[in-house]
Design a protein around this nucleic acid. Sequence first.
DNA 1: TAGATTGTTAATCGATTAACAATC
DNA 2: TAGATTGTTAATCGATTAACAATC
Lengths: 224, 224
Amino acid sequence: MDRIKLPNTPSIRRMPTYLHKLIKLRDEGEVFVSTTLVAEYMNLDPIIVRKDFALTGLPGMPGVGYKTGELINAIRHFLGWDRECSACLVGGGSLGSALLGYEEFTDYGMRIVALFDSDPDKIGRFVHGHEIFDVRRMKKMVRLLKPDFAILCVPSSCAQMVADELVASGVKAFWNFANVCLQMPDGIVVQREVIAGGFALLSAKMLKGKGAAKGALNGVADCD
Amino acid sequence: MDRIKLPNTPSIRRMPTYLHKLIKLRDEGEVFVSTTLVAEYMNLDPIIVRKDFALTGLPGMPGVGYKTGELINAIRHFLGWDRECSACLVGGGSLGSALLGYEEFTDYGMRIVALFDSDPDKIGRFVHGHEIFDVRRMKKMVRLLKPDFAILCVPSSCAQMVADELVASGVKAFWNFANVCLQMPDGIVVQREVIAGGFALLSAKMLKGKGAAKGALNGVADCD
DNA sequence: TAGATTGTTAATCGATTAACAATC
DNA sequence: TAGATTGTTAATCGATTAACAATC
């Protein structure tokens, strides 16, 4: 019931984008990188980037920037992505497949160690090199494999049930893509992805855009 | 280059979750709903929910709550989801399929009017009832269909190119799932989804969890 | 009336932004 | 030295939280 809150949430959300861009820059031979450059790419104020980089504890070089390679490592360490971490994925539908095909996760130290589904047509098939196991084998396999967390890509109607089963099997953290808020005991970590949340923001931006166009006639820059 | 910022971003992000839960409650016959109930479900402070509901302009009834149906409509209106809105989707891979299969979007007034891909194996096939068209027909079709926005589910390496083409065809807004920050002219709305951002938060929560466990021995509830 | 809930106003907290000295 | 950038400290802004009167 305790609502522990995580500090620097916006900064943490930005980290993977920094990381991805930095890796690309490093691969292109950039030994140094400045917050100016990164900020321009992400359309952020440079000081935001500087503060975010400061969170990793890595000092930069005034007048020059940061050593690209060191910064990459610092961000990885900050996120705990410098250690291997294992996950099991429940739900082999298109969203599950998309996540399995997302190659960046390997860079982030995440390894999917088991994939489950309840659909007899899917069981035994392979998705991106991962065999789909019968969800009825989940409890036993999870107890054995002890994944660090579980990814839920199941229909919302059975997400709670699946999560309960996984908790009973020792899973302590969830990345939940189902459209429900899981009711979990204390100490269980849940990160829920609300795909429609992004659409809501897009819609609000579009509404605001239309409003601004009207407002512009009156010289009003912002509306809301 | 103007960095217009959207107010109430966190509230807007929560709206679809409220909406989904409220629709469920209404379908179960709940005529009234209180912020207490919704807050408990989402593990939020009730006052957060109250403030969010207030944004829609709908008054509640002290001692009772809100009329479920009216609240649903108010949220829909607040987000602009009470009007039909059309989109084209580029990229018929597993992520694109997942989005096409996401039934809630229909409730939100969003209609996908065209689906494009460059893969000859995919062109002509159907995904969730939508035919995949050759991306080479995109420009002409988009000019004709005039979708309100485009959804990008293409590899990051070609996202910028596809977006540029769409802008040239009159598209004014993007929901970008590719792992790049699009460089767009002023007046173009972009909402980027960073799937790894959620994973970063999950990782940070797990790290904090471990830290707290250690800290707990010293009676320290929070760490960092 | 008692209990529950809304709505409003003020207080707190944390993230963003500004300013500027220090450094390469 | 001049230009660019970092790092730090303070100011601002906005979201969350607290307190409580008003209402059903």
